[in-house]
């Protein structure tokens, strides 16, 4: 990755509110044209980070840069190339969708002549042409969200930042919306930063995700990377369901070296161990004529990664608090 390809760079970014550290020495680099998901529970400091990226909040330490421009010192330039879709985006309820977009165009210093054709084009793109001349106060959540995208695109941004964009959308609207986000990155080559606590949706569209808990980025990478990191560092858990499921099998399983715990969840066995058991178990099943009806190594999907990291982090933070507060633990 060369310097030029890094659209968003956060370095040691820190923001404190009184005693509480909302964002704690955050380091992050997002490449051009990448969709990056900032995942974390509510109150993790996602919105604070975004506000610092837009120069709306000043960091106590460190810096944030977008396309090589310092977000705090030169917020105006950053805001020219960055589109921001806040959580719960709102429009002036007494103005129509079109008027709202026109106002944004004027704020961005667009030429009066180019504003109207551009509005038509963008409304078409987000599928809002039908409702363009209704008052924005009558719009549903999904419509506001789509108008929000058009609003962002008025300034033709190189970087798009979205805060909880999928919140409160119905499944169909969600699908369309995610498709639109993906399109913005792939076809237009825009860099997109999405913050969310809704994991499944984000998983579908992000190139990379960062897991953000209590102001710290505790893991960062592609979804498969996070999965392997989790497996390596934590422990393995194998879900197993066989036909039949008898004591002989249980005996074998508990006899394998490295197995820490076996528990039963309905008809399913969960075998926790500190090494990969798949090959060993499979060959045993085959040789002894068991029929595996379910066989799955846990840790592959984001929800598990997320909850596991989150639990892990909470434990550790607790332990850490009692000992001594510090940082650097994030760099795994």
């Amino acid at each position: 990755m060369t310097e030029k390809d890094e659209m968003i760079v956060l370095s040691g970014l820190t923001r404190r509110y009184g005693n509480k550290t909302a964002v704690d020495h955050l380091n992050l680099k997002v490449k051009k044209g990448e969709v990056f998901g900032l995942l974390g529970p509510n109150g993790a400091g996602k919105t604070t980070t975004i506000l610092m990226l837009l120069g709306l909040t000043e960091p106590d330490e460190g810096y944030a840069m977008i396309d090589g421009i310092n977000c705090t010192r030169n917020a105006m330039e950053v805001k020219k190339i960055t589109g921001y879709l806040p959580d719960n985006v709102g429009f002036y309820p007494d103005m129509t969708g079109r008027e709202n977009l026109r106002f944004t165009g004027r704020l961005n210093g667009l030429n009066e002549k180019e504003i109207d054709p551009k509005i038509d084009e963008l409304l078409e793109r987000v599928g809002m042409t039908q409702a363009a001349d209704q008052k924005a106060g009558t719009y549903s959540r999904g419509m506001k969200q789509r108008l929000g995208i058009a609003d962002i695109l008025m300034k033709d941004p190189r970087v798009i930042i979205m805060d909880e964009p999928t919140l409160g959308l119905d499944p169909e609207g969600m699908k369309e919306f995610l498709h639109l986000i993906r399109q913005l990155a792939e076809e237009d080559g825009r860099t997109i930063l999405v913050s969310s606590h809704q994991l499944y949706q984000i998983q579908q569209i992000c190139d990379r995700v960062g897991i953000f808990v209590q102001g710290r980025m505790i893991a960062c990478g592609t979804i498969p990377e996070l999965g392997t990191a989790l497996v390596r560092e934590n422990h393995y858990a194998l879900e197993l369901e066989t036909q039949p499921l008898d004591d002989r099998l249980l005996g074998f399983l508990s006899g394998i070296g490295g197995v820490k715990n076996i528990r039963r969840e309905g008809a399913r066995l969960i075998i926790e161990s500190d090494k990969d058991l798949r090959e060993q178990v499979m060959s045993y099943l085959y040789e002894n004529h068991y029929v595996p009806t379910h066989f799955r190594q846990k840790g592959g999907d984001l929800d598990e990664i997320y909850s596991s990291y989150f639990e892990h982090e909470e434990e550790e933070a607790h332990r850490h608090d009692t000992a001594k507060r510090g940082h650097g633990r994030r760099e795994k």
Partner: peptide
């Protein structure tokens, strides 16, 4: 309360 302030201030205006 309309949620327009954040959007407004994200535009390149003082």
């Amino acid at each position: 309360s309309n949620g327009t302030l954040g959007r407004l201030l994200a535009q390149p205006i003082y």
